[in-house]
Nucleic acid binder design. Structure first.
Lengths: 209, 209
DNA sequence: TTGGTTTAATTAAACGTTTGTTTAACTTTG
DNA sequence: CAAAGTTAAACAAACGTTTAATTAAACCAA
């Protein structure tokens, strides 16, 4: 159930890039087959249908999108603020590494008809919010953080800011005259900037009175 | 050129809702015709094609999405922070009022092949960033704001947080046990919360040392 | 106002493509 | 030699767009 062959992964990753940039309906199974370098019929053969290919992709990525964080949260030597910084960096790294998958999730969240992916997204969000809520409550008990912190909106700022930057990086590049930078340079640049920005934002809103 | 007939607007607004929730490629012209209550052929008759209908929609919405802000920025009696608060509320109101159009724009920004909408989005972003940059610089000169403010990332936070909340409000509602609220109550609730959140965020990052 | 003519609006049907999926024949593998 | 993998071809359905026929609206001289 969990193991995908090389060829299946090849197909899923081709589909991932196309779904991210053209949308699910904007991508034909022939596009995917060509991009993956396999015969058209292999997609039905391995996954059953285009829809089920999407579900497999969510399972494939969802599998390693949820596992981290816990051990860091139990670390006794870090301050609560340091842990928040850890959450920010780990979330950011994750989005940066899985940019295409993140775009697909963003698209899915806009849809009105709820598909098989909806449940997974909801659980992911729930778990994330609980972890952060727990972390913030701990900081409040220790007196590190102030009272009256709106955790859901804080999450919206973390996810929204990061996501917006990822999905509009082309515009960001042009708007701020960074077109000379290579892709790696630009990613490094934006990671650094975004990390600093989010940390100072969270520090301010969590600690200042 | 600027005037659309009632029937044309009827078609564009039907298309807007469908494009927002199903995507451009996920919406057929037959869907649009049915939703708008017109004959299939009227879409080609009035707009030429599905693609050109999309362009018309951008022109129709883009027309009244850009006009505000300037007169408030020239107000001599407001503090710079008050003006920033004004920008936040006005941006938020705009997104809330045009939720569907905003979803469409978000989707368009993810696309790799740049369509006729790309230029408009770029210009909109550029103008917004310039206005905010101007406002922040003014506050810095007056000594109201601190130095070293990253305006592009601040914009990403404003736009990203607001946009994320709009596109994921269904999840937000469920996750925070607000499903008993009517649509109007929920919109009022979220507007209030988001406005407070963004203002305290901006105040902290602009003024605290 | 009337009657005649032109223009615009509206319709159902048909057009050629592209879509996702399946078939049946063939090849490779264990 | 049976099972799994791979292929080109074919399938019906849905797609965006166009056609040709019909109705409604606008116009204008008598």
């Amino acid at each position: 159930m969990t193991g995908y062959s090389e060829k299946q992964i090849q197909i899923m990753e081709a589909a991932e890039e196309l779904f991210a940039n053209k949308g699910f309906d904007g991508t034909s199974v022939r596009d995917i087959a060509e991009e993956a370098g396999v015969n058209l019929a292999m997609i039905s053969y391995y996954f059953g249908s285009k829809e089920k290919l999407m579900e497999s992709l969510f399972q494939y990525r969802g599998h390693y999108i949820t596992l981290q964080l816990e051990n860091m949260l139990q670390n006794k030597e870090m301050s609560s603020l340091q842990k928040v910084y850890g959450v920010i960096d780990s979330y950011m790294e994750r989005i940066m590494k899985l940019q295409c998958f993140h775009k697909i999730m963003s698209r899915e969240q806009m849809a009105d008809v709820k598909g098989a992916t909806t449940k997974l997204i909801h659980e992911l969000k729930k778990k994330n919010q609980e972890l952060v809520q727990q972390l913030i409550s701990e900081g409040q008990k220790k007196g590190e953080f102030k009272k009256n912190i709106d955790v859901p909106l804080l999450m919206a700022t973390l996810i929204g800011t990061t996501g917006h930057l990822v999905t509009t990086q082309h515009y960001y590049k042009k708007l701020n005259n960074l077109e000379a930078l290579s892709d790696e340079e630009f990613e490094k640049h934006i990671k650094k900037k975004l990390s600093n920005h989010l940390k100072s934002l969270f520090k301010a809103v969590l600690t200042y009175e």
